[in-house]
Design a binder for these strands. Structure first.
Lengths: 171, 171
DNA sequence: ACCTGAACACCGTTCAAGT
DNA sequence: ACCTGAACACCGTTCAAGT
């Protein structure tokens, strides 16, 4: 809040006329972060395979989160507080629903997908911030690190999509 | 740090003789949190089905994280910093490997599982803390909320396990 | 070897007062 | 309507000095 105020050339207390507190301000940010999906947006509606639609939605969400420092943390704390719009989970659920799954299954799958996405990108961004701060001096690497984060992300999404596929073939 | 020091009846600065900083102290905590798996420990080795082994490992990890306030956040920040032991991801990978998957697939799957677990439990615990603080006064609920968190967790794990199963049947 | 005391450089938030 | 000034109640961390 103090740094934002300085950037706006006002006193920190000025912010509290516009927002009741920091979390409410962050919720506004979170909505804009997820609303600005950089790629795959227009293409998503044209995909005839529901699996590709889910993959595209997940990838676009990752890109949107990565575009802002601490994007994943801001979005996930906002989600946890019940602030922010339900659009993110709704869009994922709609992509899943194209596979012919019922509303409940779609919503649960979207939730699982979102938890994976937020967990994955959170980790990615924490690492980015830590070594930009030079905290990881010893060159120590997390057991969760991948040389190709995008591929590791896609692997996880594919696993979840595969699970849905299997559950469908069993009906 | 200040509250911990007070609980130990020492000055905050005394802690810095024992630990270089807060994160190192939290890393020690994180190792103990995941080392203390409450249930399913002994039983895990006796399970002949790799899918049950993975499910049991994931459930035990969730229980361990839930047993401490902010457990998921402490563990995930420690993992991101490359501190703490790689035991958590190793044990998940070993459970997956019982399905006959190669080492690389097992490790990647374990990573995806762990990201899901941390994402899910993080959300659970943030909610717990928020409404114990009375922040969620309006009764607002997150679009990620489930009436049965354990079932939602199991659903996500099953999706990931199912994805692995499908990839195996395709070989 | 282990801890205290005092300080440094921060936080988010409140609230009377200004314009 | 919008902002300042000053304060409150916090943080993690450092470091000389004590025992």
């Amino acid at each position: 809040m103090r740094r934002l105020a300085a950037a706006l050339d006002v006193q920190p207390s000025a912010l509290y006329w516009h927002f009741p507190n920091k979390q409410t301000l962050l919720a506004e940010l979170a909505d804009r972060i997820v609303a600005a999906r950089p790629a795959g947006w227009a293409g998503t509606d044209g995909l005839d395979d529901w699996r590709d639609a889910v993959r595209a939605e997940a990838a676009a969400l990752r890109d949107a989160l990565l575009a802002y420092r601490d994007g994943a943390e801001v979005v996930s704390s906002t989600l946890a507080l019940g602030l922010g719009s339900p659009e993110t989970v709704d869009r994922l659920a709609r992509a899943v629903a194209r596979g012919g799954f019922d509303a409940e299954t779609s919503r649960r799958s979207a939730t699982a997908l979102l938890h994976f996405v937020l967990g994955h990108v959170s980790h990615e961004q924490q690492r980015l911030q830590y070594d930009s701060l030079g905290v990881l001096a010893g060159g120590e690497s997390s057991p969760l690190d991948e040389d190709d984060p995008a591929a590791a992300f896609a692997f996880g999404v594919d696993l979840l999509v595969g699970g849905l596929e299997l559950s469908r073939s069993r009906r």
